[in-house]
Simulated scan of single mutants.
Amino acid sequence: MNLHALRLFYIVAKNGSITIAAEQLRISQPAITSQIKKFENENGITLFVPQGRGIRLTEIGKQLATEASLIFQLENKMETLIETYTQGKIGTLKIAGNYLTSNFLLPKWVSYLKNQYENINIKITTLNTDEAVKSLISYQSDIAILGGGATNYSDKIDVTKIIEDDIWFVSAPNHKYANKIVSLNEIMLESFIMREKGSYMRSLLKSICNTAGICFPNVMLEFNGLHETLTASMAGYGINFCSSIAVKKLVNIGILSRIYVKNINYKNKIVVCVRKNETRSQLVKNFISIIENQTL
């Protein structure tokens, strides 16, 4: 079936006039008449008959106009769907975050996004850096918001820094080194509470120890979440090595205390990660724009 000719017929039928249809479509009346006549001949039907100075729909013309209306309503609905999707106003955004970003940064950012685009769905999965990158490159996530360890995967993903913060050693206020300045050798003899292998902070601390030529500390408690490691430190056991974003408020109110290690001043980069050499969806672009506006 010639859908172009069907559309011309439908617009004529809807307006009851070839003249009005020609004005709306900005094509000549003879062109419309020719296309409709060809459509009639191809299908062996008559759609219009003369009526005075105008036209009247035949029985099949009336029935076809009703069915054509459903087709073009559905077409308009699909066009609207595509338009709203390409504008990032609908759809599902799948975000992979590490424990730091999922707990301390993403809740605020996705709330801003949802306020602007209320019809979107947002799914956040909390993973360590290794797992989050795998989730991204395997298309289980659309975007990842991670710590600096993601830069190690720059051959697989595009990484853009958005903010940077300090990395602190912290402990309970009653720890013997709380609020004191110590050497790296001294603090590495203490018991540590850390995330699982594959987490960025654990890998970074191991790199620091290797560079300094000293042994990695005893990890006496290991958890799969940042919140759990901090809770254990607050309970009075062990030292944590983590982003200041996670502990600054706890230090300020005295629940945790900093330990100052000589000549150790590392920064934690928070980065946006997307798949390499891939066009970003508008929804991803909208989310990145919100992050950038919130971190200016």
Rank of each mutant, 00 (worst) to 15 (best):
F9E: 03
S257H: 05
E42T: 12
L74Q: 09
C209I: 10
K161H: 10
E222Y: 04
T92N: 06
A172G: 03
K180W: 04
P173H: 01
A246C: 00
K108A: 12
R26T: 01
S183A: 08
I255L: 09
P107E: 00
F72T: 04
V272M: 00
P50I: 01
N286M: 03
L184P: 10
E196S: 05
L136W: 01
N121C: 05
L221W: 13
K249I: 10
N174T: 11
F241C: 07
L256I: 00
K114W: 14
G238Q: 02
N218D: 04
N185H: 08
C273K: 09
G148L: 10
L146M: 12
I259G: 08
Q24R: 13
V12E: 07
G61V: 13
N265A: 13
I90N: 15
C273H: 07
A13E: 09
A246H: 05
E131M: 02
E79L: 10
V110W: 07
I288V: 02
R275V: 10
N179F: 12
N252F: 08
A65K: 15
E228T: 10
Q29A: 00
S154K: 04
R56Q: 08
V272H: 01
V170T: 13
I291T: 01
I145A: 04
C209E: 01
Q282I: 02
I71S: 10
D142E: 02
L230I: 15
E196I: 05
K14A: 00
K108V: 06
I120T: 03
A31F: 00
T126Q: 01
I120H: 08
I157W: 03
K38M: 08
N103Y: 13
D165R: 13
S154R: 01
Y153F: 08
L3Q: 04
I11Y: 00
K248T: 15
L184T: 14
L226F: 06
S233W: 13
T279V: 09
Q35I: 07
Y99L: 12
D130R: 06
I124K: 00
I167D: 08
D130V: 07
F192W: 01
T101F: 05
S199L: 00
Q24L: 12
D166P: 13
L250I: 00
L106F: 06
N15Y: 11
M188E: 05
P50T: 03
V110D: 03
E228A: 15
E190V: 15
Q87F: 02
N210C: 04
L57K: 14
A132L: 08
S191N: 11
Y177R: 06
I167K: 11
A150I: 07
A68E: 09
I36C: 03
T58E: 07
S28N: 03
L6T: 04
I11K: 01
S191P: 02
A13H: 06
I124M: 03
F104S: 14
T84L: 07
S102Y: 14
K176H: 12
I122T: 00
A232G: 12
V261T: 15
N98Y: 11
S111E: 09
P50Q: 01
K248A: 14
S34D: 09
K180H: 11
L189V: 12
